[in-house]
Write a protein that binds this DNA or RNA. Structure first.
Lengths: 216, 216, 216, 216
DNA sequence: TATGAATGAGGCTTCATTCAT
DNA sequence: GATGAATGAAGCCTCATTCAT
């Protein structure tokens, strides 16, 4: 989650200055794509936002697409770390809700992520694929583990793969519907979490209701 | 599902010729977007496919975006009709599976739809919104009805709205993952349907397993 | 040798206007390349000289290279006609001198030709090849005919091919050396023609000196 | 024909290291231009091939053009030496054929030369001029000497100058036509030499045929 | 209404050259 | 002297839209 901050630019050696410039471009791209979308993220706009010349861009990236394709995977890793840090040791169903909620926390933390994620499929397909593979394989493993622990209803590995698509689709569609607002990214209403929870708790896990919502 | 066919071009009055031309452009756009995506659907390409001059385009549509925004809602209605025709009178859960399957049948019937639907959010946002409103309000009503019939677990109206997002997200993501192939649109594997069925049957509806897979 | 002249622009139908614009671009390119060389003949410069927008260029030519590759062959044909019109019915050797002289007359008539010809090999290789094939095959045929008439020393067909290279090389190098000047293209000195005449008369043809330079 | 070889880099004083670097750049430029042509010989490519930084280039050459303009004259001298060493003491006509053949031997020895020579006129005009002056003045002197010896037909000095252009043009055009091939530079066919020989022997020199191809 | 050439803004990329380290 | 990142001008091309016929 390294980020170029304008503090103490002084006294950097060559390597550092180089990395610093690349980071500036990267950060600028994140902001521009997050705000205007990939389609409007011209090299001119990005470099202007980064405060470097247009030519400088090509000292650090092969071409425009290469940068765009790096955006999602890089931030995606931040997301994974963020979510993992917020996942406790409760039962499988509750952990899934934690992950779900953490996802929405993350997109508020990094509001650019929402657009970067949602548009990537069409504007940065390579990056999208990379991210998707990262995420979905890890996600499938999680489900497999909860199956071993007897926590999920009977699903085959292939079915888990499909389920992961559904769960990721849920995040994608719900975030588009509930997180965008005039000024930035907002939290989703509670009932969204509740709805998801109901669906998943019974549809995916073998949880009794009593376990799930404390006393009831 | 009106479509311009080259039969009997003769003997059309002015109004008919007008509509006919517009339809040709519309059909061409459907094909082009379906095949190459919105980004590659230039006015030149569309008009060439339609066999009309570029200028003609602007006699029928305010601008490129206007046409693109009409694409999804129009085909979306076809989809609704198609699915409705394939939904029986079984119990709510089974109906949902029928709708789900019918969706994948439809995108094979109208292969252009897949791309038109999936890309619309970013290239034809107005049309996307329109389509989405069409669909989701109808969808919510269906769920409300099944709730009245006691067929669904307890969900509030707002939660239903969220659930609809999830169900549509499932279709979107699953179709992207499983329907695209080298040559056109293919059927999804059975386990995709099964996985969805398991999730929905227990997560959304009060169905016992026994009820679900036999005649009764 | 059609050329766009600014006279009576009025009253042209669509097809004519179209051809007229293309011709304007073509003429402009001829001038620009003739004056500044291919390397400096940017589309911007050409279209500016033609008085049309840059985008117009691409309504008439696939790309910059396509135009450049048409330049030489087109003017080359003018050259062939020009030279042919100036070749009499004298003996073979004298005809060759006529052709040689006519070449230098032509480059004064169409001063742009010099640069267009000489640079083409490296900047418009396709056009160069085309032109070269045009010229050299015709040239070889001429030599073959004079051989049949007993006018040339013994050369095989393959040797004629090589000779043609030499004769064209002579024109190329001599024109570079003697025709360029500060302000436009100038006539070559008489001694250049004389030298060529001597070389060719004895080296290529069986001409006695007496025949060649009248009385002596 | 000094050339940077990677042997004993050790123990060079400042001046030597300096010259060594410059030579490396020079050699790299020769290779790059020979292989890709002047147009593709960017400073980046040359310095990369030389194994030095781009900035280093400007410590040794004022600018890109300056280097390019040095290429031909320098190798041209090698050529002169090469040809001179292969010219015997036979009669004038035979010597000219030796020179002609030696030229084609040289471009096989130094395959880069072909492109460097042929493209120079347009990409390195200053260097081209220099080279041309070198060559042609020497060439004219040779012809003058053979005239003094009574070996050439009557030509004035000015005519010799023109003849030299023709002879160089012959080499240029013939090499372009016959020496380039897929993989490097190849020998010209025998009939090319024969054709040249016939043209020159009778056109330029007073040689009887009988004199030409036997011992005498 | 249909036509299709003309427009010009804007996008991506290359590359010679400079300059701080 | 060597380095290599930074610069920015300039080039080619695309494409939505306009407009005269």
């Amino acid at each position: 989650m390294m980020q170029a901050t304008s503090a103490k630019v002084t006294k950097l050696n060559r390597v550092e200055r180089n990395a610093w410039t690349k980071q500036k471009i990267f950060d600028a791209a994140t902001k521009v794509v997050g705000k205007y979308g990939y389609a409007e993220a011209s090299v001119a706009r990005i470099t202007e936002a980064a405060g470097v010349a247009q030519g400088t861009f090509y000292n650090h990236f092969e071409n425009r697409q290469e940068l765009l394709d790096q955006l999602l995977p890089k931030i995606g890793l931040d997301m994974v770390r963020f979510i993992r840090a917020r996942t406790g040791t409760a039962d499988a169903a509750r952990q899934e809700i934690e992950r779900f909620s953490a996802f929405f926390d993350f997109i508020r933390e990094v509001p650019e992520f929402l657009r970067i994620l949602n548009e990537a499929e069409f504007f940065a397909p390579v990056g999208y694929q990379k991210h998707f593979d990262n995420i979905s394989s890890a996600y499938v493993r999680i489900l497999q583990r909860s199956r071993s622990a007897g926590a999920t209803t009977a699903f085959t590995d292939e079915e888990f793969e499909a389920i992961v698509q559904v769960l990721m689709g849920a995040r994608g569609y719900l975030s588009r519907r509930y997180s965008y607002s005039e000024h930035g990214v907002t939290a989703v209403p509670d009932y969204v979490v509740t709805a998801y929870q109901k669906l998943v708790t019974h549809g995916l896990f073998n949880t009794d209701d009593k376990d799930n919502n404390d006393e009831r």
